[in-house]
Nucleic acid binder design. Sequence first.
DNA 1: ACCTGAACACCGTTCAAGT
DNA 2: ACCTGAACACCGTTCAAGT
Lengths: 234, 234
Amino acid sequence: MPTTTTRVAGPRQRRRPTKQGTVLTEGLIVETALRLVREHGEGGLTVRRLGAALGADPSALYRYFGSTDELLLAIDDELIGRCMAGHRPSGDWLADLRGIGRRIHATYRDHPRVAQLAAYRVTGRTHEFAAVETILGVLRGAGFGDADAVRHYHAFVDQALAFAALDTAALGSPAGAADARAWRERYARLSPDAYPNIAATAGHLVREMPRSAYEQALELLLESLAMRLRRAAR
Amino acid sequence: MPTTTTRVAGPRQRRRPTKQGTVLTEGLIVETALRLVREHGEGGLTVRRLGAALGADPSALYRYFGSTDELLLAIDDELIGRCMAGHRPSGDWLADLRGIGRRIHATYRDHPRVAQLAAYRVTGRTHEFAAVETILGVLRGAGFGDADAVRHYHAFVDQALAFAALDTAALGSPAGAADARAWRERYARLSPDAYPNIAATAGHLVREMPRSAYEQALELLLESLAMRLRRAAR
DNA sequence: ACCTGAACACCGTTCAAGT
DNA sequence: ACCTGAACACCGTTCAAGT
């Protein structure tokens, strides 16, 4: 449950149950939103649908969140919390970063709409503070100086979030399925005269392109970080 | 102008000018859409707005594109074409990849809505074919084997596109400006007891986080590719 | 053959009215 | 103090009617 949500009004004392009996709470709204995103995927999250899922009039939500944007940040922060909750430091900075990267990617993959709408946002809330603190700690603990730690933090986190948003959009949706077909049915049939490089690698393209490239990109990034650290140590 | 747009009806012979006098064309629609995205940024691209900009009823566009999705792919392919049009091979594979990466990122940055909606799509059209062919050519020319060339192509392109989508969303919008403030006003003031790593690097965070991390991420990726190539050569 | 205009089923958000 | 319901200004898309 998000603890630092900016409330529109002051603290509530009495709570009137909704017409269908539920008692609204910031926590309940965020939880229900995450369930909605998880189950209905793509276009699942709208104020009106969320209201219906809660058994409340959509406009009632504006008493808890000033706008969809504010609600989104609360949802995102809760997701960050769940993401980092399973992380256990191993003492090996490379393994820690690899684990955190995969965790971020996987968590957002299961909540596509949040990935697309909020991955690039700064929630400015407690779970995000804790996540930033942890990742910076891994990098500084590895031996990077403060300036490098921050730059590498930025590249590492943005890469995880950016790929998560891209992959949920590309892999989950019906559009993504159509795009996978394009590699088989269009690219694999292009003329070797006009497109020699595509023709030469068509088999690989058909296998590789419908998957996520994040694992690849993560390893390339980590490899560079390790190399830079070794180089600085000498 | 996109050359392979799937037409809804057969080829048109006569064209009736619109009420306001314009004669619709697939090319004109795509051009106008790109101008709209470029000038009005964020929420600029809707069927209704595009119709208004063309001086036509919104529903007239459905005669040229079966859906917004199809229109989007045509727009995206045109953007890919403009992106690669300025590329000149230098003979140095690293410089070529760096240049293409920056080009992709910059082109989508200027057309934020396309970046967010279409960056992850496969257009299956000529400009995209040419771009894939070129980039695969750079990697194979560098000495990578076919399987590696394809995997590295995938990581490289998806990284450029994913960061472009993330950065246009984060940096351009009003939400992005609010998020930049969060680093100054929230993170820079967190207690050193609760968040030692954030407190120790606060100054760096405030400077680094409101910028794009793509340049960093790109260099880390290229560094790894170069190292792998050297290693394979031995 | 092509464009228009009304219609349908959706959005987020506001605000006066209910309890 | 909180929830409801009508209203407003938007969406994408369809289809009969116009020219």
